[in-house]
Each structure stands twice: as structure tokens, then as C-alpha cells.
Nucleic acid binder design. Sequence first.
DNA 1: GTCTATATACGGATAGAC
DNA 2: GTCTATCCGTATATAGAC
Lengths: 210, 210
Amino acid sequence: MPDLKVKKTADPNTEAKIKTAARTIFHTKGFAAARTRDIAEEAQINLALLNYYFGSKEKLFQLIMFETLSEFFKNMGAVFNDETTTLENKIQLIAEKYIDMLIAEPEIPFFIMGEIRSHGPELVEKLPSANAILQSVFFKQYKEAINKRKITELNPLHFLMNIMGLVVFPFVNSTMLKKVGKLKDKQFNMLMEERKKLIPIWMNAMLYAK
Amino acid sequence: MPDLKVKKTADPNTEAKIKTAARTIFHTKGFAAARTRDIAEEAQINLALLNYYFGSKEKLFQLIMFETLSEFFKNMGAVFNDETTTLENKIQLIAEKYIDMLIAEPEIPFFIMGEIRSHGPELVEKLPSANAILQSVFFKQYKEAINKRKITELNPLHFLMNIMGLVVFPFVNSTMLKKVGKLKDKQFNMLMEERKKLIPIWMNAMLYAK
DNA sequence: GTCTATATACGGATAGAC
DNA sequence: GTCTATCCGTATATAGAC
């Protein structure tokens, strides 16, 4: 008689399902507002399995946070330190890659910033890439461009704030922007696509302004 | 025999103290992570008094949220709709006023965006000013400037995203920026002061770029 | 109005059957 | 591995003394 699988056989995907669900819930609600029950429901598994596989809400969160951060910074390190591309190339690549990523997962920057605020700056310590940003090839090239054109030298952080502000901020504040502009998600994303081309132009204009 | 006030006379400031404390706690932690005990401690009052005066955590939150939003948008409405100032004037005023406000209360934009995300867009409905932004004098002047100079017309939302990104984003992401730039609060605020002058220059350059 | 003590609800976690 | 039932800490809220 064949095994009809009438009863609970192990689901090989349970662990993965929980992780995917946890990612979604944590990203959208943040650690404090996320409930393990939300995650269990999203994953369509029993609540007890969350603890069985991951020990605790806290441990599961640490895992998701670690993966999210690695993912968020890994692609960027390569662009920032590529010796073969120009400053202008890099600006364009950063705009394109970040915007693509943010269209795919728009909740990530808010999630990261929120958890950095609440869990304190210890979290930032764990970002190897973060500390080295100002020493990257990207910023060396920025300084060269400034010197060459004999422009008043500003703290390079302004440059960093500007490109991040232009790229990331619309996603962080998307709810309000959609409301103000009466935009559907699709239209909003179209605007973001436009910005891939516009931001390099704007950044260039800012660089040599006045 | 004089009244030595040995015992509990009514403190006329209790209500105000709770509100001030609630503001601080809600702004820094958000609704979900804020505990009524945190607020009571911050205000140095008995926990029960919070409910005595404000009914519930939820009601107290609604009050703080309403006041925060009104305050955040009221000054801006005046600037946006002033017929007597030019576009350039307004950009400068917005940068100055917003940055002053954000140096004084840096947690506000993150707080507002976070609660809009979690409490859903109903909250945005309650912003009378928000819906009218694109009809303001500020944006009329923006469109005139574009037409006059025969520049490719973009969705005005780009203009809004840009100025907000440049002004607000550094405050939203301040923890990471301080870390990356190894800045004390004081140094960070100095950079923000610099931006009051820089943002108008940059916005102008962006406006007529390419 | 202010306090202490307590009720009530909720969320994270585990025991133990299957 | 998966489920049900339950425990326990914590957080909001209230009852009632002063």
C-alpha cells in the first residue's frame, strides 16, 4: 500500500518559508512592532516552529538583519572601489543599481535606518563597508575632480548626503509622495526610473555649481 | 499654622509634563516601541496619571501626532504660498527654516514617516497642506521658471523630492552619517548649517542643468 | 489629583502529545 | 517535525484608598 501522506511529513521548506516571511514582516514593521504570530501566519506555519528552527524572535531578527545588511552593502562596495570606472560612471552606476534594488525592495532603507536608531550605533560598527566609504576610490576621484576644477572644497560628506538624498529619500518617504502626487505604485516606480538618468546630470551640475 | 504642603497638592503642570514627555518618547521610539512607563518616568509622574489625564496610550499618541504634524506643516504653508517672494527666495527660506527646525528636533521626520508607514496612509489624509503642495505658489513659480528657460519639463515631484532629499535626508540618516564621518553632534550640526547656504546654490544648478 | 494594588490582555516561549 | 495547550513575563488600564 502506497504512502498516501495522510499525516505530517517533514516539510523541507519550512525553515526557508519562515525566513522569507520574517524578512517581509521585519522589513515592513520593524523589530518592535513585528509579532512572531505575524511571521508564523505569513509563512503559514505553526508558531512553535519559529522557535524550533530559530530559537527566538531575537535570534531570527539578528539573522535577517545580518543578511539584509550584507546584501545591501555588498554590491555597492564593488562599485565604490572600481579603479577602472570614472567618477561620472560611478555616479551613474550607483543611481541605477540602488534604484533597481529599491524598486524591488523599497522597505529596506527605512528598515535599516530605523533599527540603527533603536538598537543604537553598535549596529553600525558591524558594517565594515560603512567605515571605509570616505577612503574609497569613489571619494578619491571626487576630491581629484574638485582640485582639478579649483572649486571650493567642501566636506565630502556633503557629496555623500546629496547622492543618497536624491537616490534613497523618495523611497523612504514614498507614502507621502504618492499621496501628494496622487500616484499609483506603477507611476511612482516610473518616476524612479526617470531618476536613474536625471541624478547623474543633477549631481554633475551640483559638483560644479557657482 | 502655615500650610507646609506636606502632602499631595495638585500639581498644575502634571498634564503639561506628561505631554512633553510623551512627545519626547514617541518621537524617539515610535508608538509601538514606546511604553507608557517610559513616558511616566520621563515626566516623573505616576503611571496612573497618564490614563487619568489622557485616557489611554492611543489617545495620548493621537494628540501628540496631531500637534507634531500641525507644527511641522504650519510654518511651511506660509513660505510655500507667499506671493511676495521669488522662487529663489523660497528655496533659501525653506532650507533655512527646515534645517533650523530639524537641528532643534531631529527626530521628527523619521517619526512622521514611520508612523505614516505603520498607521497606513489614512494619516496622510489628515494633512490639509500635503494635498495642496503641488498647487502652491512655490510650484507655480517653479513651472514658470521652467517655461521661461525652455527646459525639458519634468514632473514637479522631482523638484519636491530633490529639495526634501537634500534638506531632510541627512537628519533621517544621521546616525550612519555621524559614524561614517566620525562626527560629534556639534560637527554634524555645523555641516547642516553649511547646507543652508549650499542647498539653494545646488537647487539652482540642478534646475538649469544640461 | 495622586498613589498602590490589581485586573486584564497580549506576546514570546516551551512542554508534551502525536 | 509539527501540532495543541499552556505558561509566564510584560504592558496597558482601572479600582479604590488617601
